[in-house]
C-alpha cells in the first residue's frame, strides 16, 4: 500500500472517529435559540456555555436536576474505591507472587475467573447482602462493591508485575532480617509506582464509567453516580437533546483528562489488564 494511501485512509478514519466528539462539543457550545436537531452538524454561530450550565445545574422550571451533585458523588465514590482496591491488589499480588503456598495457583485461577463473570449473576444476592449490612443505597455500598469486584483485576496486575521483581532481592532482604512487611516496604514498594499508576488509572476509569452497580445499588437520585444520572437525564423526555449531549461531555471529562494526561499509563493498563473489559 503506498504511503499516500495509508495517510489518506488514516485521516478519513480519524475524521470518522472524531465525528461524535465534534457533535458532542459543538452541540454543547450552541445557545438554546440555535439548537436544532435538523441543523445538528452546523458550527455554532456564537460561543455560549448555557447548555453546559443547564446540564450542570439543572432547571427548576423544567423540573430536572443537574449533574453537579452526581458528578461529586462519582468523585466521592471513585477516589476512595480506587485507592482501596489498589492497596488491596498490591498486598494480594505481593503475597501471591512472593509468598507462594500450596494451592496458590488454583486460587489464582479462581480469582481470574472472577474477573470475567457477568455481574448479573451476583446482583440479586448482592442487593440482599448490602441491605443486611446496611450499605445498600449508599455511596459506601458502591465503594464496597467496586473494591470487592475489583480484587481480581488489581491482584492480577500486581501479581504479574511483582513476578518480575527478582527473587534474589527478596532473599537478600530476608537474609538481612527483613520480615514480610519489611520486604514489602523496602523491596516491593519502591519499585511499585508504575504498577500503582496502571492499576489506579484502570480502576478509576472503570469505576467512573460503571453503570450497572450504580443503577442497582443506589436507587436514590441524590446518591447516584453521574453515569446513572446521565442516563436518567437522557431518558427524561423533557430534557432537550443538547442538554443531554452537554451532560455526556461532563460525564466523560474526568476519564478523558486521565486519558490525555496519563495516556502512556492508560495504554499500559489496557495491555497489562488486557484480560478484562
Amino acid at each position: 500500500m503506498p504511503r499516500v494511501a495509508t495517510y489518506t485512509a488514516l485521516t478519513v478514519l480519524a475524521a470518522i472517529y472524531l465525528l461524535p466528539i465534534y457533535v458532542l462539543i459543538i452541540t454543547g457550545l450552541k445557545s438554546f435559540e440555535e439548537v436544532n436537531l435538523y441543523r445538528m452538524w452546523d458550527l455554532p454561530a456564537a460561543f455560549s456555555l448555557e447548555t453546559f450550565a443547564r446540564a450542570w445545574l439543572g432547571s427548576e422550571s423544567q423540573g430536572f436536576r443537574g449533574l453537579s451533585n452526581n458528578f461529586w458523588n462519582s468523585v466521592r465514590l471513585t477516589v476512595p474505591a480506587t485507592l482501596l482496591s489498589a492497596l488491596l491488589g498490591s498486598i494480594n499480588g505481593y503475597v501471591l507472587s512472593k509468598w507462594k503456598f500450596r494451592g496458590a495457583d488454583g486460587l489464582f485461577m479462581l480469582l481470574l475467573f472472577g474477573m470475567f463473570i457477568p455481574y448479573q449473576s451476583i446482583l440479586i444476592p448482592l442487593v440482599q447482602a448490602l441491605r443486611s449490612i446496611g450499605l445498600y443505597g449508599s455511596i459506601a455500598g458502591l465503594i464496597f462493591a467496586h473494591v470487592v469486584y475489583g480484587i481480581p483485576i488489581t491482584t492480577l496486575i500486581f501479581r504479574n508485575y511483582y513476578a518480575t521483581v527478582p527473587g534474589e532481592l527478596v532473599e537478600a532482604a530476608k537474609i538481612d532480617g527483613a520480615g514480610i512487611f519489611g520486604i514489602y516496604k523496602s523491596v516491593m514498594l519502591p519499585v511499585s509506582m508504575p504498577a500503582f499508576a496502571v492499576v489506579m488509572i484502570w480502576q478509576f476509569t472503570s469505576i467512573w464509567n460503571d453503570f450497572l452497580f450504580g443503577v442497582i445499588i443506589t436507587p436514590r437520585p441524590a446518591v447516584q453516580p453521574i453515569t446513572v444520572a446521565l442516563n436518567n437525564l437522557a431518558g427524561s423526555y423533557i430534557v432537550e437533546w443538547n442538554v443531554q449531549m452537554a451532560g455526556a461531555l461532563l460525564a466523560a471529562l474526568p476519564t478523558m483528562l486521565v486519558y490525555i494526561l496519563l495516556g502512556r499509563y492508560f495504554m499500559r493498563g489496557l495491555l497489562a489488564g488486557s484480560l478484562k473489559g
Binding site: L10, Y38, T205, N209, L230, N231, A252
Partner: peptide, 28 residues
C-alpha cells in the same frame, strides 16, 4: 496523534457513547 484519536473512545463510559450515538443514529 492517530493512535490517540482511535483509542480515546475507550476512555468513555458506555453510557456516554450510548447517549451520543442515540442522537447520531436517530433517523429523523
Amino acid at each position: 496523534v492517530f493512535r490517540s484519536i482511535f483509542l480515546f473512545p475507550l476512555a468513555l463510559s458506555f453510557i456516554v457513547t450510548g447517549v451520543v450515538w442515540r442522537w447520531l443514529l436517530n433517523p429523523g
